[in-house]
Amino acid sequence: MADNKPGIPSIAGLVAKIKSGELFEEIQKQVLSSQIWTSSFRHGYADTPRNRVLQIASNVWLHLHPVKIQRHALRIKFTWCMGGITFLLFLSTVVTGVILMFYYRPVGEYAYFDMKYLQYDVPFGMLMRNMHRWAAHAMVITVWLHMFRVFLTGSYKPPREFNWVIGVFLVTFTLLLSFTGYLLPWDQLAMWAVTVGTNMARATPFLGNEGPFQEYVFGVSAQYDARSALIGGSIVGPPALLRFYVLHCIFIPLVAGALMIVHFWRIRKDGGISGPL
């Protein structure tokens, strides 16, 4: 028949091949036996239990995992994937943030114009800035959802109490990371949002110059109180910019990163993801 000529496969035949998976096997065979492949990889991967274990145990990145887990821990309906996505978003902000740091100077005279330069003159600068900002905002949302899921599954109950406590530190640091970053564009939005936020420190009991009982603490004044320690002066000015920059790029990421390591380590030590016994 006409449509069975060699070299011109029929559509129906092709669909059948795709459906049965035969086509992919064929492609795989072609690729795996090609000269490029065989010269690059000296031997194939045999899907044996021993190799499955080695893939995890002998890989510096993957060995964060146990080699075997409870079947139910795979269910997205259980974890919502939110802890992992939070971590991924954190990593995305680290990568994009380092790139932004190449172009940004935390100085009153420069900061705003560096942002403009980044947006209009740096190749992919706008994209990097957008990814950094949206990943940060998304991280705030996913960490709240992660916490909600952990609460709903009662996963803070013994033996995981302490990991919940670490988690509360993590959510606090996530918010502080986002908040300190908010000032850095040095535009009106940044300056006034941070003014509103840090004004609260003025009202700290005992230590803020407008807080309850401040009159009983020696030396508390608008120039010298909890708020001025935070922003390095009595208004949100260049010293605040530098302080927030250092906190945002160095101190908080280091602390949050360290806490994440402990968080992941504790998940394993506490017996993996929680589940019905």
Partner: peptide, 16 residues
């Protein structure tokens, strides 16, 4: 009851 992390969990994480 227990499954290998490679490939079952790693492939999920990758897709996610």
């Amino acid at each position: 009851e227990k499954v290998h992390v490679w490939p079952y969990l790693v492939r999920l994480e990758f897709l996610c």
